[in-house]
Design a protein around this nucleic acid. Structure first.
Lengths: 119, 119
DNA sequence: CCAATTGTCAACCTGAAGGTTGAATAACGA
DNA sequence: TCGTTATTCAACCTTCAGGTTGACAATTGG
């Protein structure tokens, strides 16, 4: 399996969990420490730490030990990858929908014979 | 958990599997039957059927029993939902990145005293 | 109407996901 | 240096995801 595929696997899997999506939402507002984040959830700090590891392995989040606070922050790159994938198929699905629409219109034209009908 | 949350759970989870993303890619080209799709994978037809059920439950795919062939086709709506979610945080992550950039520039300005520095 | 083809259901297995608790580690302040 | 605080590691449990095979259901063709 190529690298791109595995990155998409991890990224989509990471965001399939509502707690992790919520973590992303919080980190979009401001960087925060594990402890700070954990306060908002009804689960152990260790569990939150695990969730952050999953987000980290997926490349959605980076940890900087540099500063004295705020070690976790969002990283945009993988969002790009997912966005590209989804947009591609969203566009195609919509296209196909429009084409189906056109086809159905054509069909109902054929039901009531029309002068534009070829051979 | 609200409906939107559960739909996102299912949608992201559905696309976390590479076989299912591949099914989506194929269905973006043309509708197909379970059997036709299954030929391309090294797994049982039942397994593919299950994957399609997951995609269906996630609302990414619809099945029409009407016609004699091509029963599975893509549905764009849930793609919209995911796209909106991702774009939102992609944008914020990028914003925060730019702001960090600016902050670092400011910091290095402060290191070498500059005339634009206030107070 | 019968048979063949096509798809789903059911039971089962294995491994991984998400949670727990308790111990280990690392960095900081006094 | 020593204790505190913050975080991760390790072992364990339970549930679920993804695959298998075999039996069943339904639809189409002759």
């Amino acid at each position: 399996m190529d690298d791109r595929t595995e990155r998409l696997n991890r990224a989509f899997a990471a965001l399939a969990d509502p707690t992790r999506r919520d973590l992303v939402a919080r980190l979009a507002v401001d960087d925060a420490t594990v402890g700070e984040l954990a306060e908002h959830y009804d689960m152990s700090l260790q569990a939150v730490s695990k969730h952050l590891k999953v987000l980290g392995d997926a490349g959605l989040v980076t940890r900087s030990k540099e500063a004295q606070r705020r070690p976790v922050h969002l990283d945009a790159e993988v969002f790009d990858l997912m966005s590209t994938w989804i947009e591609r198929y969203r566009r195609r699905a919509e296209e196909r929908y429009r084409r189906l629409d056109a086809l159905l219109a054509e069909e109902s034209d054929r039901a009531r014979p029309s002068e534009t009908e070829a051979s």
